[in-house]
């Protein structure tokens, strides 16, 4: 093994787990002892990564407060050190960590709140794409509706939450009174997307969530209608599907319709 490998390995072990094998590789000086010099690096490492976590999770940071968030950041960093080139992606497993970590197991909504925040970051810098206007829809011949393929905007994320984490997220990010935490009987679906550089989110009725889920999976419009068929007459279904589609176009959810 090369000298360089050994040195870097010892230095990284020091940063990751405070192992002092690197100590003998550092020159002792009168101005600052070795441990002080080394600690500049370990403190910078911890504070930089915890700050990056706070950037991705500003609402959790406020909700937990400085000290508790520092502790969370420290624990997370030990379990999931970064293997990313860009620090932007640090924190991708925070929702999983909050679920598995005993400290937070009594606060199950925290993991959902983390999921909301991470999704917001994904929506923020997802790929750009053109969106269609309602005119596009009017130009489609009626016989093509069944087979047409609807391509969603790349920023779209469909999520389900048991807790009222979106009202909670909104209240904290707008500096308003935090709502009472509530768990719904069955999970509620939410769609997140970006339009004109602004992030949006909206709760969905069950059939609409199913329809969007089907589009994400590449179903044609006709197949989406069949999914909706379980609940109503054929004509009602067609009306419902068409009105959903109009709503999606007006909200900027649709990038392309191929027919």
């Amino acid at each position: 093994m090369s000298q360089l490998f050994l040195l870097q390995n010892k230095f990284q072990d020091y940063l990751l787990s405070s192992q002092y094998d690197i100590f003998n590789d550092i020159v002792e000086t009168t101005t600052a002892p070795i441990n002080v010099r080394l600690s500049i690096y370990s403190e910078a490492y911890r504070s930089r990564l915890i700050e990056a976590l706070a950037t991705n999770y500003p609402v959790i940071r406020v909700y937990l407060g400085h000290d508790q968030f520092q502790m969370l950041g420290q624990q997370y960093l030990e379990k999931y050190p970064s293997h990313f080139r860009s620090i932007r992606w640090f924190g991708d497993c925070l929702d999983a960590f909050l679920k598995e970590c005993e400290t937070y197991s009594n606060f199950p909504y925290l993991s959902e709140l983390a999921k909301v925040e991470w999704t917001m970051t994904l929506v923020f810098d997802a790929s750009d794409s053109h969106i269609i206007t309602i005119d596009t829809l009017y130009n489609i011949p009626p016989e093509s509706w069944v087979d047409m393929q609807i391509r969603l905007h790349p920023s779209i994320h469909l999520m389900q939450f048991k807790w009222n984490v979106l009202p909670l997220w909104q209240a904290i990010s707008q500096n308003q009174a935090v709502p009472e935490l509530e768990q719904s009987e069955s999970p509620v679906s939410w769609v997140f997307w970006r339009n004109n550089l602004i992030n949006y989110y909206c709760s969905l009725a069950d059939d609409e969530a199913r329809a969007i889920g089907a589009l994400i999976n590449g179903y044609s419009f006709g197949e989406v209608c069949e999914l909706l068929c379980e609940e109503g007459s054929e004509q009602d279904i067609a009306m419902r599907a068409a009105s959903l589609l109009k709503g999606w176009i007006l909200s900027g959810l649709i990038s392309e319709i191929k027919y």
């Binding site: 490998f5 870097q8 390995n9 990284q12 940063l15 990751l16 690096y41 910078a44 490492y45 930089r48 990564l49 990056a52 050190p81 970064s82 293997h83 990313f84 080139r85 620090i87 640090f90």
Partner: peptide, 8 residues
């Protein structure tokens, strides 16, 4: 090194 990034 070893696939990890210290971001420093």
């Amino acid at each position: 090194m070893l696939g990890k990034n210290m971001h420093d």
